[in-house]
Design a protein around this nucleic acid. Structure first.
Lengths: 189, 189
DNA sequence: CAAGAAGCAGACCGATCTGTCTACACACAG
DNA sequence: CTGTGTGTAGACAGATCGGTCTGCTTCTTG
């Protein structure tokens, strides 16, 4: 793994656990064992590193979710079941790929970059849109009618965010199961 | 307004807008026009101030929500309608009492204090539990059966968190309306 | 071989961080 | 009258912040 990747992975780990503004550059350097000069060779500023970390998590999360959805049954109910079982695995730390659950990195990050116009905030918004798009794609493949897919994908997204927040803030680790049952009831109409 | 309250209100405003770790003590002092000695007279540390700010927002939010729910129709569907209309007002900045919408302060704060054992995190969890309890209380008064009330209150809580996240991260200001429709469909069963 | 990219350690910069302290002012209760 | 509580302004301390820079090494590539 090259130094750039080492920095991004280490920074993600620390940012995810403690928040972005709570973690200093020097801490990232110490943990990753990379020299300061090297960091500023790859990134023009801390914020550029933050952007790279968001992009890294974006790619990792979408890859994981896509793999999970692809291996499930390709029906509407099958997809919903697969989605919320995947979330349940995540909440209960059965996915090494995503590291220990500390809520949604993108939601947490938007808490620190609250202005909707900020670049970091926009990257987070784009991630959430990408997730809903992915869900819509899978729904479309099941043969659901077009207007219903995007509406259902939005609904699943809303339930997913709600479950993540309840799992993180309240420690309600069964939130994915609950949300999945709600989703099935809503999709039945 | 005494100096202690001035500090808390100013700190909340800055924390809510920019995040907690991004705002320094000196900035709070400058904006509030309070002396540093006075701050440390009332609070033993920045974290003690943070705790007071969380408690302040907790009280303010619960008071607002309670007032809104009380003036609505006391039926299940009436309550759901009232709840999500209130959220819609919040998301679209029609509630001066809550200041400009920047997502949920408690969710944002949990992003910065990710460890579930941390005192600040626990205060946020308690707030979320208090909201669900309030919803359950109102549902109970409509004459709904006991086991159904707590389940429905949890569901409403999940939809509420999902709507808040979508409204903040995605800028989807209609999220409360969407979530309200879902809630009505779920409650109809 | 030469050049440049990528790496190291860490000194250094000015700014800012949380928190302490001095010195003084005013109000109010015993 | 005299302490106590609440307040002011701001110097100060020690640590840490993001970021720059020097000097040196190693690898790769034209």
């Amino acid at each position: 793994m090259d130094k750039r990747q080492q920095l991004v992975v280490t920074a993600f780990d620390l940012f995810y656990r403690h928040g972005i503004h709570a973690v200093g550059i020097n801490q990232i350097l110490q943990v990753s064992g990379v020299a300061k000069k090297t960091l500023y060779h790859h990134f023009s500023s801390k914020e550029a590193l933050v952007a790279a970390v968001v992009a890294y998590r974006d790619a990792a999360y979408l890859e994981w979710l896509n793999a999970r959805l692809a291996e499930g049954e390709q029906t509407v109910t099958g997809l919903i079941h697969t989605l919320f079982m995947a979330l349940d695995d995540w909440f209960n730390d059965r996915v090494e790929q995503l590291t220990t659950f500390h809520g949604c990195f993108f939601i947490n990050t938007c808490g620190e970059y609250g202005e909707p116009g900020h670049e970091i905030h926009r990257l987070c918004a784009r991630h959430k849109a990408a997730v809903v798009n992915m869900l819509a794609d899978y729904l479309r493949r099941t043969g659901t009618a077009a207007p219903a897919t995007s509406r259902l994908a939005q609904t699943l997204g809303l339930l997913k965010e709600g479950a993540i927040v309840q799992a993180h803030v309240q420690g309600e680790k069964r939130a994915a199961i609950t949300a999945g049952e709600l989703a099935l009831r809503l999709a039945a109409d």
